[in-house]
Simulated scan of single mutants.
Amino acid sequence: VAHAVSGQVRPMHRPTVHAVYRPRPEREPVDAHPAPLRSVRLPTGPADPSGAAMRLRPDPLSLPQLAVLMAWALVSAAVFVWLRVRSQARLPVRPFAMAAARAVQGPRVRGQHTLPVPMQELRAVLFDMDGVLCHSDDCHLQALKAELLEADFETADGRPIDAAFWQEMVSGQDSDQVMQNLFPHRDLLWRQAFLDRKEARYRELLRGRLQPVLGLRRFLAWVDGAGLRRAVVTNAPRASADAVLAELGLADYFDVVVSAAECPQAKPAPDPYLLALERLDITASQAFAIEDSPSGVRSAVAAQVACVGVTTSFPAHALRKAGAVLIAPHFVNFLCFCPDALPSLNPEGTTYWFTGTDTFSNFSPHPVRIEGVEWPTSEHYYQSRKFAGHPELQEA
């Protein structure tokens, strides 16, 4: 290299570059001895008499190698463009949809956009009883278990009679069908006597033990305030339905009570809901039902009644698969969907209430004002808390 730089190189001379390196493993032990120095000879091109630096000349790429390189570059560029477009198009979808809905529907009222039936058409609410008005599965299970033990009943696979057994074999199903599934070799009179004993034991157990579903009282107050009619549609015997309503203090609250014994077929057939609509003198489009089991949801859907699923007994995916158009864990959550059910926190404007299952998030483009400072989104405010005490950084 020194000869080349100084120009003391013959025209046909091919100098060599001596490179010294020390190979190193990926992870050396602490007490490892350094590797010995080695020398390699790297051929270079002819020297530049002008003294310019020399460059190594790699071998040219073959056509197959060039084709592979170009294909890799095109695929990488396509993936990058797709990810870029997808990330940019995801956020504006929700605000655009909300703006379009407001332009078409006009000013939005709290909850009106999420109810299964528009408020201007709604005339009644149809309630299932067990699992919707109250938590009664424990009392039912204890009564059934006691009667099964007295009848020396054993499951075919030896499984215990527990909550999982109740949900799979009993919950939400027609009582006569349950008895037939449990006792296929018994006659109808024996099964009916067993069911009567079980229901009588259940009515004894529920005294002082029934708990209403969270938010029930406030939701019923909203139903009253909205001037809507009310009906109970249940597969339970009428005596048990009356006992539950009396225990909850709702014996005189409902306009109509329909039990399975009054219908040709019980849920999941549409008969109970069709009878309730007939007694209320309304159409299916003027009411919505509230159910906690896939069987009950299918019954309402078969009667062409929009159904809300409450996840007190079954998971949301099971209710949605059965046809529920709206899912809520309890009535406190469902109140967010009901117009004027929750108080307005802004007397000069509109308060929008959202639930944990809504797509409304801290990145939604709705400004918030806190302590006289307006933030573009709630996320801006949350991030600013990291710089408390430094206003200039918070505003940045």
Rank of each mutant, 00 (worst) to 15 (best):
Met12Cys: 07
Lys145Phe: 02
Pro365Asp: 14
Pro268Glu: 00
Gly158Leu: 09
Ile282Asn: 05
Gly158Met: 06
Arg27Gly: 09
Ser240Trp: 02
Glu204Thr: 10
His185Trp: 12
Trp375Met: 12
Ala306Thr: 01
Gln105Gly: 11
Phe337Met: 03
Gly309Thr: 01
Arg27Asn: 08
Arg84Leu: 15
Gln265Ala: 09
Thr155Gln: 08
Val258Met: 00
Pro118Val: 06
Ile290Gly: 03
Leu42Met: 11
Ser361Asn: 13
Leu277Pro: 00
Arg218Glu: 14
Ser364Phe: 07
Pro107Arg: 07
Phe80Thr: 13
Lys198Glu: 02
Gly172Tyr: 01
Phe331Gln: 01
Lys386Gln: 14
Ala246Phe: 04
Val325Cys: 14
Gly356Glu: 13
Tyr21Thr: 13
Met119Tyr: 00
Asp358Gln: 08
Pro25Thr: 04
Ala19Ser: 04
Pro272Leu: 05
Ala35Leu: 15
Pro367Lys: 04
Leu37Trp: 13
Ala35His: 06
Pro270Ala: 05
Arg14Pro: 10
Thr357Trp: 07
Leu210Asn: 02
Ala231Gln: 09
Leu280His: 03
Pro60Met: 05
Val170Gly: 05
Ala322Trp: 10
Pro64Ile: 09
Pro29Arg: 13
Ala239Val: 05
Ala78Arg: 07
Val40Ala: 13
Gly111Arg: 10
Asp174Trp: 00
Val125Ser: 07
Gly45Trp: 09
Ala200Trp: 00
Ser364Gln: 09
Leu182Cys: 05
Cys139His: 06
Ala67Tyr: 02
Val244Leu: 08
Arg55Asp: 09
Gln105Ile: 01
Phe334Leu: 15
Leu319Ala: 06
Phe331Tyr: 15
Leu83Ala: 11
Asp224Ser: 11
Ala251Gln: 15
Val332Phe: 11
Leu228Pro: 01
His18Met: 10
Arg90Lys: 15
Val125Asp: 03
Val104Pro: 03
Arg10Gly: 14
Asn235Met: 02
Leu149Arg: 12
Pro107Gly: 06
Val20Thr: 08
Val17Thr: 04
Ala19Gln: 13
Arg229Trp: 04
Val17Arg: 11
Pro25Trp: 10
Arg123Met: 03
Phe183Gly: 02
Tyr352His: 13
Leu189Gly: 04
Val257Met: 02
Ala260Glu: 00
Glu392Gln: 14
Ala77Tyr: 06
Pro23Leu: 07
Leu91His: 13
Ala261Phe: 01
Gly372Asn: 06
Asp128Met: 02
Pro367His: 05
Leu149Met: 09
His380Met: 00
Pro160His: 00
Val297Tyr: 03
Ser6Thr: 14
Ala97Trp: 11
Ala284Leu: 07
Leu345Met: 12
Cys307Gln: 03
Val258Ser: 00
Asp196Tyr: 02
Gln265Arg: 15
Pro92His: 08
Arg203Asp: 12
Leu277Tyr: 02
Leu214Lys: 11
Glu247His: 03
Cys338Leu: 03
Thr312Pro: 04
Gln180Met: 10
Arg203Val: 07
Ala251Cys: 06
Trp166Phe: 15
